[in-house]
C-alpha cells in the first residue's frame, strides 16, 4: 500500500489548471503551423495566424487563452493499492479549482443550479470522474471545457446493423451543423459502444490520449483517420470561415455494448484544447 496525501493531489491539480489556461503545448502549435501552410483562403489563414499569436500573447503576458476558462473536468484513475490521506478527495480537487481560478484571474463560469442559475463565484463544483485500477499510483487528468464547444455535443443510438458509413455521415452532419460555434479546428472525441452514459463519458476520456499517439488498435486508428479526412472535406474550416482544416485530430474510445445497441457519442473541443495530466 502507498499513501498519497490530498495536499499533493491539490497542488498538482492547481498546476495543471494553470498550465492549460495559459500555455499551448508545442505539438498543438505545430498542428496550426502546418495547417497554415495548407490553407489558401485568406480568412482561414488569418484565423490560424491569430490563433497562433493568441497562444504567444497568453503565455507571455499571462492572459487566459480564452475568456471562457471552462468547466473543470477531472479524470482520476486510482490504483487500488493507494491509500488517500488528508481531506476528502472531492474537497481537495474543488479547493484546487477555487484557488487556481481566483489566483490566476480566470473566469468563474459555474452556476449552482441549471434552472435558477446563480454563479457560485469559485468555478466549483468541478466534474469528477473516478475509476479504480490496479497498482499504487494515481493518474490525474484535467480538461477545461468551454461552453460553446460543449453545447455542440451529440449522442445517437444506432442500430447494431447500421453501417460504419452511416456513423460517419452522422458525425459529419453534427460537425457541419455546429459549423463555427465550437471554434474549429476541433479536437473530436468519439465514444462508441457501452450504454448511452458510458459512450458520453468515453467521448471525453478519448481525448486524454496524447495528441500524437495513434489508437492502439489499427482498426480504430484507420477509422479515426477516415473520419478526419471526411470532416476536413466539409469546408467548415478554421473558425467556420471556410477552409481545408475543420478537425485537428479524432480520438475514439470504444467499449463493449449490448446486442441491441450501438451508441455513438461526440464531444467537440475547440482549437484551444486545454488538457493536462500527471501520474502521481
Amino acid at each position: 500500500m502507498r499513501i498519497i496525501h490530498t495536499d499533493i493531489i491539490k497542488r498538482e491539480a492547481k498546476r495543471l489548471i494553470y498550465d492549460c489556461s495559459f500555455f499551448v503545448p508545442p505539438e498543438i502549435k505545430e498542428i496550426y503551423s502546418m495547417m497554415l501552410t495548407e490553407e489558401d483562403a485568406p480568412l482561414a489563414r488569418q484565423s490560424l495566424s491569430i490563433i497562433l499569436e493568441n497562444g504567444e500573447i497568453a503565455s507571455r503576458e499571462e492572459i487566459p487563452l480564452c475568456q471562457d476558462c471552462g468547466s473543470v473536468i477531472f479524470f482520476l484513475e486510482i490504483g487500488q493499492d493507494v491509500h488517500i490521506e488528508g481531506s476528502s478527495l472531492y474537497d481537495a480537487l474543488n479547493e484546487a479549482v477555487a484557488c487556481a481560478y481566483q489566483k490566476h484571474y480566470l473566469r468563474k463560469s459555474i452556476v449552482s443550479d441549471p434552472l435558477r442559475r446563480v454563479n457560485t463565484g469559485t468555478n466549483t463544483p468541478s466534474f469528477i470522474h473516478i475509476d479504480i485500477v490496479d497498482g499504487d499510483k494515481i493518474s490525474l487528468h484535467v480538461l477545461l471545457k468551454g461552453g460553446g464547444s460543449e453545447n455542440a455535443s451529440a449522442l445517437r443510438m444506432f442500430r447494431p446493423t447500421d453501417s460504419i458509413d452511416s456513423i460517419i455521415s452522422f458525425i459529419e452532419e453534427v460537425i457541419v451543423k455546429a459549423g463555427p460555434n465550437p471554434c474549429p479546428p476541433i479536437f473530436l472525441g468519439i465514444g462508441i459502444g457501452g450504454t448511452a452514459d458510458v459512450a458520453m463519458v468515453n467521448s471525453k476520456k478519448a481525448l486524454l490520449r496524447p495528441i500524437d499517439a495513434p489508437h492502439c488498435d489499427p482498426f480504430y486508428a484507420e477509422l479515426e483517420e477516415r473520419i478526419k479526412v471526411t470532416l476536413n472535406k466539409t469546408g467548415v474550416g478554421p473558425l467556420g470561415f471556410g477552409g481545408k482544416n475543420t478537425v485537428a485530430a479524432v480520438f475514439i474510445k470504444e467499449a463493449p455494448t449490448h446486442i441491441a445497441s450501438l451508441p455513438v457519442a461526440l464531444n467537440l473541443n475547440c482549437h484551444s484544447f486545454r488538457k493536462g495530466g500527471i501520474v502521481i
Binding site: 484565423s47 492572459i63 475568456q67
Partner: peptide
C-alpha cells in the same frame, strides 16, 4: 460581425 473565437488574449490587446 463575427470576431475571432478562442482568441481572447489576442483580442484583449
Amino acid at each position: 460581425f463575427a470576431t475571432f473565437g478562442g482568441a481572447g488574449a489576442y483580442l484583449s490587446k
